[in-house]
Amino acid sequence: MNSFVLAECTTVEGALSQLKDGAAVKAGGIDLLERMKNGTYQPSKLVNIRNISALRGIQKTQDGLTIGALTTLSEISEHPEIQTQYQILSDACGHAATPHLRNVATLGGNLLQPVQCWYYRSAEFECIRKGKNFCFAFGGLNQYHAIMDYGTCPAVAPSSSAVALLGLDARIELSSAKRGKRMVSIKDFYVEPDANPTKFTVIEPDELLTAVMIPKPAPGTRSAYQKYGEKESFDWAIADAGVVLEMDGNTCRRAVITMGAASPVVRRSQEAEALLAGKRITEETARAAGKAAMTNVQPLSMNAYKVDLFPVAIYRTILLAAGQASRDPSAAG
C-alpha cells in the first residue's frame, strides 16, 4: 500500500472541506484498502470519515427510514424495525461478505464500491474501466461476469444492499461544501459502462454520501433477498434476487424484482414484475416470473450457467417473500 496523509474528521463540514485534489474518502475502508493493497488506486490523501458520529444511525421518520451513511451492515441487518418492515434490506445486509466484515463495512461504502471484475481489480490489467480501450473479460475468464445489459464491460454490480434499496425505491443524499445537498433516486445513482466506463456512480469527487432515505412500505408489503454464491460465505454473489411484493391477501398488487450480479448496474426486471401483478403467488407464477427475467440475456463464453441460476434465485425468493417457503438452505449465508 502506498503511504498517504490521513485527514481525521469528526464533522461532515470538516470532511467536505478536505475533498479536493484527489483525496479519497475512507469509511470502513474495506473496499478502499483492498484496491490500495492491489495497487490499482494510490491516493496521496485519505479523508477518514469513520469517526463522524452524525453520519451513523437509523432513524424512523414520518416518511419511512433514514439511515446514516456510516451505519454498518451488521447494525442494519440486526435492526428490529428493518427485520420486520424492510426484510429485503436486512437479508441483503446480513448476507453480504462475512460477519466480521459486516461489523465494519458501512452502507455508504457498500453502495459506492466499484464493480467486481478480477481484471479491473488487478494492477496488471489496464482496462476500459481504468480509462484504456480494452476489456479483457470478453475474451478471457468471464464465469462471474454479467449476462445482460453490459455494453462495453461486463463487470458486475457488487453491492448486495443496492439490490435491496432498488427494490425499496430508496433515495440517496449527497452533500458538497459548494452546492449543498441533493437527492438522487437509487435508480439514477449508478452509471452504465457505455455512458462512462470510469465513473461508477453519479457522486462527484467533492461530495459525501451522507444518508439513505427509504419510503414507508405500502400496506401488505412483503419482501426478501437471497444471494447465491460459489461458496457459502465470504464471496460476492454469482446470482442474487431482491423481491418486494405488495399483497392483497394472496394476490399480488404490485411486484418489484431486482438483480445484482446479472449486469454492471443493479436492475429491475419489468418482465418478471408484469407476470406477477394482479396474480396469486404460487409456485407456478413464481417460476414463470423467474424465467421471464431472463428475456434479453446474452451470456458470455463461460457464464451460461447464470441463465439457469437466476430464475431459480428469483422464484425461490418470490416464494420466500410471500411466506410460502423458508430461506433456501443452498443460498449463501
Binding site: E34, A97, T98, F234
Partner: peptide, 21 residues
Amino acid sequence: GACSGCTVWLDKVPVNSCMML
C-alpha cells in the same frame, strides 16, 4: 478480508485486523 485469520476484537466485536488501519 477473505479468511478471517486475522480476527481480533474491537470493543468485543470481532473484526478483520488486516482490513483496518
